[in-house]
Computed example of a mutant assay.
Amino acid sequence: MTRQELDAVESRELKPAARAIRPRDAATLILVERRAGEPFVLMGRRHRRHAFMPGQFVFPGGRTDPADGRIAVAGSLHPDEEARLIGEGARASASRARAIALSAIRETYEEAGLLIGRRQDFATRSAAWRGFAEHGVTPSLENLRYIARAVTPPGRVRRFDTRFLAAWRDSVAVELADGGPTDELEELTWLPIREAMKADVPAITRTILDDLSKRLAVDPTLSPGAPVPFYFMRAGRFRREIL
């Protein structure tokens, strides 16, 4: 896909930027559940007043806070998953990979009211993680799987270097009946992957759903250490590489 073709597809999703913007680390969590053998994923509709992708269905997620990496966990990332998240480059580190993974868990709590981890005492001074302490859940990274990575193309008013992680629904220790403490998402719903791909979703989300569907077909348990597709723009073309 060329830059012009991608701009046309994303014309409703992102506004152009007047200056170069460096992508910020972000993480998204795809919760998966099998029903009668068919994989379903959790999605929510963004409020229409939001400037970024208003009204579209997305997975819970958002920007990574480096402080997330200092939160205690009940279980660490699988070594193979950590190695792929660390990747290469000047900013690569285990602490950065940990922060990215934990931010996906935090955002899933904030936006969907789902606390991923183990039911055990948890203490923290971080206001962002106080909900886990209140509900007696220690976050855990052991069941997270790295599914894909995508960098928002240049020229957008917001740019993110997003890691798409996945976990099975049984990794959720507590489900809050009223959802999360923020109003980022509404209409939280579980959709079969094939239906989710037809919903009002961003172009990259549809691509990631297709990748996930194909991976589940050959790797139904989402085993650790699998190759990860990486989407980015270079020389005016949208590219896909394998990490």
Rank of each mutant, 00 (worst) to 15 (best):
G75F: 00
P54H: 09
R118I: 07
F160T: 13
I193L: 02
L176Q: 07
S140P: 10
H50D: 15
G131L: 12
D183F: 14
A226M: 13
E111M: 08
I30S: 08
E110S: 07
L42V: 09
F52G: 02
A123L: 15
E10Q: 15
I105G: 07
L216D: 12
R96S: 10
R118K: 11
P181L: 14
V157T: 14
T2P: 00
Y146V: 14
R206W: 03
R240A: 03
R34Q: 11
I86K: 12
L209M: 05
R22H: 04
L102P: 00
S11G: 06
G44F: 11
R145N: 04
K15G: 09
P23M: 00
A72V: 12
D219G: 07
G55Q: 01
D7C: 02
L209T: 13
E13G: 08
P192S: 03
D65Y: 08
T189A: 07
S126C: 04
L31D: 01
S93W: 08
R206D: 01
E195P: 03
F132R: 10
S140I: 13
G180E: 00
G136N: 02
S103P: 01
L14H: 11
H47S: 14
D200P: 10
H135G: 09
A20L: 04
A51C: 06
G179T: 12
A72T: 15
R35D: 00
H50W: 15
A20I: 13
A112R: 10
S171C: 12
S93V: 08
L165A: 04
G117L: 05
H50V: 14
L29E: 01
P139V: 15
F122K: 01
A217W: 09
F59P: 10
V201K: 02
A226N: 07
I86M: 03
R149V: 08
D210H: 12
A8F: 09
D219R: 11
A101V: 13
R206T: 10
P60Y: 01
L29Y: 06
F238C: 10
M197Q: 11
P227K: 04
M233S: 09
G117N: 08
D68Q: 05
A199D: 08
E81M: 08
P23C: 02
L222C: 06
Q120F: 02
E10S: 12
I105N: 11
I208E: 02
P181D: 08
R206Q: 13
P66M: 11
T152W: 02
A133R: 10
L212A: 07
F52A: 05
I147T: 10
F238T: 11
F59W: 12
G69V: 10
R91I: 13
V172P: 00
R35N: 03
I21Y: 01
D219V: 13
F132Q: 11
D68S: 01
M53L: 15
H78R: 09
L209G: 04
N143E: 15
M53A: 13
F160S: 06
L31I: 13
D121T: 15
T64Y: 01
V228E: 01
R215Y: 05
P79D: 02
F232N: 07
R24D: 12
L6G: 00
L77V: 08
R48S: 09
P60D: 01
Y109T: 09
Y146H: 13
E111H: 11
L216P: 07
P79S: 05
I208S: 00
G225N: 02
A51F: 03
G225K: 08
S213Y: 14
L114Q: 14
F164V: 15
A112G: 06
D200K: 13
W129A: 00
S95H: 10
L141V: 07
